[in-house]
Write a protein that binds this DNA or RNA. Structure first.
Length: 411
RNA sequence: GCGGGUGUCGUCAAGUGGUUAAGACCUCGGAUUGUGGUUCCGAUAUGCAUGGGUUCGAAUCCCAUCUCCCGCCCCA
């Protein structure tokens, strides 16, 4: 036997019995998002590497060590690790800034990140997400969060936790970062290795370190004072409190988490996450926020934006499996030609119908019918001779012999 | 990238150095030449993630690689 070739690490087949679960996610998305005026967009799976370097940010792990990058004709291309950069690229390239604001887009599809696989994390995984362009007011942030909550609700997920935070704008955040670095400078040598890296890369990330020795350092009064200070400027604070006003008004339950820092560089002001307790350590099903400078950084006009993405595998693992649909009918016949004609006729009338192509014995065919269909349509010598079909309800065992053209009224 | 665990049929599993690797489910065939989902019989791993090694003898011990899982990092 020839050597078997396996799926590659961190990737998975979505098998026929699981596809219905994915349809549920996609159909519910189309249904819910449409009500909020979102239009679906489909962008390529790969893009210029530079798009992600500039878009996602070259200090992030995603760009630094997790991208699938390859060269073709002297160009560096990358399998998309997330889709906000791609959607923004398309927004700019197709002149969508000239459309009447807001421009509301949604997408779903595979993303690729070279990470160590574990529960709830694969190298090829799927996201469904939304992006709204052109509204700087906090009502946009609120609508986008409400949309996420209602999408989850429509799927049957009610008990998830929404966490929100404000990262401030570039100027107040830089000031905050500077202060954190300043106050921690004397302790730098005592920080754990990860924190020493974060010190330069993303000081905000220092705050939720789980190492005991670091936690102790952060507990020191003079340091705690800086960390816990409300650093954001008046305008950002106003934006944040308006967002909370809308969320309260709409009955969205949330908690504030000062340690919530999305890992992508492009976020400013609002960031949020929706978490589940039933997912192990990869517990976020949704993450997003505002990214007012991304469109400009990628060469477009100054267009504010806000959006989020959800991990579809994680959603599916929280949802009960979808029951397989049975066929409307399975034809039991020892005459393939007659079975063919009856099946085609019913299929043309919108019914899902199959019959045994290998002409097995009667009992085997009926056994199969009971397994896969709601009705068995028996079409053997007697029926063929008289132009009838015996219609058997496989749940109740009721059977009725009717004229061929009456079958449709029974199944 | 770092640390820990794991791997026997399509699936769930027994087996922990000694003749032909239990069992269950699924699948297929038969009992049953036109009535199923209950029952009864039978079939299905020269093979134990892969490759080496130790041994008279290995699914069982050792080494390497791979997979999946758990934690860290990070993220959806």
């Amino acid at each position: 036997m020839a050597k078997i070739i396996n799926v590659i690490k961190g990737t998975k087949d979505i098998l026929p019995q699981d596809v219905s679960s994915w349809h549920r996610l996609e159909e519910t998305a189309l249904d819910v998002f449409s009500k909020y005026g979102y239009k679906e967009i489909r962008t390529p799976i790969f893009e210029a590497t530079e798009l992600f370097a500039r878009g996602v940010g070259d200090t992030t792990d995603i760009v630094n060590k997790e991208m699938y990058t390859f060269e073709k004709s002297d160009r560096s291309l990358t399998l998309r690790p997330e889709n906000t950069a791609g959607v923004v690229r398309s927004f700019i390239e197709n002149g969508m800034a000239r459309l009447s604001a807001p421009v509301k887009l949604w997408y779903h599809g595979p993303m690729f990140r070279y990470e160590r696989p574990q529960a709830g994390r694969q190298r090829q995984f799927h996201q469904v997400g939304v992006e709204m362009f052109g509204v700087k007011q906090p009502a946009a942030d609120a609508e986008v969060i409400l949309l996420a909550v209602n999408y989850l609700k429509a799927l049957g997920l009610n008990d998830l936790t929404v966490e929100i935070n404000s990262l401030g704008c570039p100027s107040c955040r830089e000031e905050y970062k500077r202060k954190i670095k300043e106050v921690l400078k004397p302790e730098f040598e005592n920080l754990c290795e990860d924190c020493q890296n974060r010190y330069e890369k993303n000081p905000l990330r220092l705050l939720d370190c789980k190492v005991e020795s670091c936690k102790e350092i952060f507990e020191k009064p003079e340091i705690k004072k800086v960390i816990q200070a409300d650093f954001i400027c008046d305008e950002c604070a106003e934006h944040f409190s308006e967002l909370k006003f809308y969320l309260n008004k709409m009955g969205v339950k949330y908690s504030e988490n000062k340690l919530l820092v999305r890992g992508l560089d492009y976020y400013n002001r609002t960031v949020f996450e929706i978490k589940s307790n039933n997912l192990g350590s990869q517990n976020a099903v949704c993450g997003g926020g505002r990214y007012d400078s991304l469109v400009r950084n990628l060469g477009g006009d100054d267009v504010p934006a806000v959006g989020w993405a959800m991990g579809m595998e994680r959603l599916n693992s929280l949802l009960p499996p979808v029951e397989a649909e049975k066929l409307d009918a399975y034809i039991v016949s020892n005459s393939p030609a007659d079975a063919f004609m009856l099946a085609e006729d019913l299929r043309c009338n919108g019914k899902a119908v199959e019959f045994d192509l290998s002409n097995k014995k009667f009992t085997k065919q009926l056994e199969k019918a009971a397994k896969v269909a709601k009705f068995a349509l028996i079409l053997c010598e007697d029926e063929i001779k008289s132009g009838t079909v015996s219609v058997k309800n496989l749940d109740t065992s009721e059977q009725k012999t009717v004229n061929k053209n009456e079958v449709l009224t029974l199944i």
